[in-house]
């Protein structure tokens, strides 16, 4: 998906460049249209897919001639791509550590700003077969608990929360991402899982969510930043403003994100 998107953007740029060269060759009598089409490229954590697509449309509506192109993926993947020279204008990360990697490579256009936060929530199949009502219930044997692996952010958060709650978790599987955890719960093979509040909201009626107080011990903060060397610096900053402003915050809150 992300490859084809990027390829699309690249080929568009190539075609535009060739067209421009041809036009220049034809003579100076032809004028370019006044509102030159611009593409703003936003790299964002996959958990932002719904909200940012929505915000992108709103941004395009108020900025005629501007197309917002998204590349959603794991934060670490996106950081690696930016480090390899991917043409991103804006980067929105799901955690602070991945954002910090950009700072060491001097790729941050300014100081990053936190725009949202997310906390863990217990997720169960709709009928909650194991009758989970608290975080302590996750320590019971035989419930087929599935969490993220400690190597990935949602797993690190789960580990932190478990330590804070002093509950020993015995998961049957440590998944690669929250999506994988969610899939195991919706299929019914896992009777409980730990995912983000936004994931529970997005899954709707397919799952049942259980909020627990200890979640506050691992709050995941989402920072956003413009990328050094962006050709659309001004537009990139305007997009950041949209996300941080009232419109952005309403959309994010609606999806289950908390304020930073």
């Amino acid at each position: 998906m992300s490859i084809s998107r990027r390829f699309g953007a690249l080929s568009f740029l190539a075609v535009a460049a060739i067209a421009a060269a041809l036009l220049a060759g034809c003579g100076s009598s032809t004028k370019a249209p006044t509102a030159k089409p611009v593409t703003l490229t936003v790299f964002a954590a996959s958990s932002l897919t719904g909200t940012f697509t929505d915000l992108g449309k709103k941004f395009e509506a108020t900025h005629p001639g501007v197309t917002v192109s998204f590349d959603f993926g794991g934060s670490s993947d996106l950081v690696a791509q930016i480090q390899q020279g991917a043409p991103a204008d804006v980067f929105a990360s799901a955690d602070e550590s991945n954002m910090a990697k950009l700072a060491s490579d001097h790729l941050q256009g300014e100081t990053p700003r936190d725009f949202a936060s997310n906390t863990l929530e217990i997720v169960t199949p709709p009928n909650n077969p194991a009758h989970i009502s608290s975080f302590a219930d996750l320590g019971h044997p035989g419930i087929n608990l599935v969490i993220c692996a400690p190597e990935v952010p949602c797993g690190a958060a789960a580990k932190k929360v478990a330590a804070a709650a002093d509950v020993t978790l015995k998961p049957v599987s440590e998944e690669q991402s929250v999506k994988d955890v969610l899939a195991k719960v919706t299929s019914g093979d896992a009777m409980a899982g730990l995912v983000y509040a936004t994931d529970v909201k997005a899954a709707g009626a397919a799952v049942h969510g259980v909020v627990f107080p200890q979640a506050s011990s691992a709050v995941n903060t989402y920072p956003i930043v413009t990328i050094t060397g962006s050709k659309n610096g001004a537009l990139a900053r305007e997009f950041m403003t949209l996300v941080l402003g009232a419109t952005g915050q309403t959309v994010l809150a609606h999806a289950g994100f908390a304020r930073p």
Partner: peptide, 19 residues
């Protein structure tokens, strides 16, 4: 699924460690 020593084979471990 993916659990060390039970279901996490080498390719799964590689994919996880990549992160």
């Amino acid at each position: 699924g993916s659990l060390q020593g039970v279901t996490r084979t080498l390719p799964l471990e590689i994919y996880l460690q990549r992160e």
